Amino acid sequence: MTAPENPLLSAADIRRLASELDLRPTKTLGQNFVIDPNTIRRITAASGTGAEEHVLEIGPGLGSLTLGLLDAAAAVTAVEIDPVPAGRLARTAEEFRPGAAERLSVVLADAMQVTAAELDALRPEAAPGPPTALVANLPYNVAVPVLLHLLAELPTLTHGLVMVQEEVADRLAAPPGSKTYGVPSAKGAWYAAVRKAGTIGKNVFWPAPKIQSGLVAFTRRQPPETTASRQEVFAAVDAAFAQRRKTLRAALAGWAGSPAAAEAALRAAGVDPRARGEVLGIEDFARIAAHRPAPTEGTPQ
């Protein structure tokens, strides 16, 4: 937990910085800045970040969480899409954490497109290696694609904690068979064990969102053993949930080439063709994808 002698950004600090930069938070970039130091301490502690780790932060904004992570970790790489707060972040860190310059790297980039090579090229001097943890207040409108992209792009990420819209948190952590289980749940499970780690109220943000936020923790694990690629497994997941009310035999007909071909693949995978996608785990989808019939001419890929 952050030591008392290390101050974090208060609501007054956030508004002062925003005024200095003439920064008006936008819905387009999903900008909701945390103004409560205790919430930052809670997130940092719950992330399980180790003192020797290099942490990746997405959307640092004005630096509320960045300061907490600098207290907890050896180094932080912060990826920010907005050039205005990105240009101020290093100076803010130095003001509140003198000597932090070698432990922080600010990367001006879109988190949905940033690559491991880009991050490695801009690694902080004090970083012990590539990022091993992801801790972030993710923009609500792109939280799932950003998380899935980073898990795919950075296999060095072994664990993390992200703050997202509470409904999204519930979906990411949902087990098979639950009402909220769907594409984010299944795809997230390919990479990691995911769980909901708490709820964050609306009033700790500026501007305050209309809904609560949820904390999602993940721990990397090996994907299911399968002869199918991740892309092939994810194609089966997408097809199964595109028509949730249909049986898998019907929902996967286009994916497999015909209802009969879908049934054959399902039976070969040991899955009841009358079942629906929301009852299957990622291991089931991996087996189904491995038994997809070879496409013939005119069959969708």
Rank of each mutant, 00 (worst) to 15 (best):
A136V: 09
G87P: 05
S213R: 03
F234Y: 04
L252Q: 07
A121G: 02
E167G: 11
T66Q: 06
A269Q: 01
F96W: 15
K179G: 04
A217S: 10
L104N: 12
A265V: 15
A133F: 06
Q231I: 04
L89E: 07
L119Q: 04
V162K: 01
V144Q: 00
A290H: 00
P223Y: 10
T39L: 15
L21Y: 05
R287M: 00
N32L: 02
A268G: 15
D22T: 11
P130Y: 01
R15L: 15
L122C: 09
G30F: 00
K196W: 05
A74V: 03
P184W: 10
L154K: 11
A197Q: 05
T226M: 05
T199Y: 04
P37A: 10
A208M: 10
A242M: 04
L280K: 11
D82F: 07
D120A: 15
A3E: 14
A74I: 01
D22E: 15
G129D: 12
E283F: 14
I43G: 06
L138S: 00
P4D: 15
A109T: 01
L154D: 10
N203D: 10
H159W: 02
A173V: 07
G254S: 12
R220F: 14
L148S: 13
A251Y: 10
R171M: 05
T158S: 14
A290S: 02
V183R: 03
F205I: 09
P131M: 08
V106T: 05
P128S: 10
D36F: 12
A86Y: 04
W255H: 00
L266V: 15
A45Q: 13
L65Q: 02
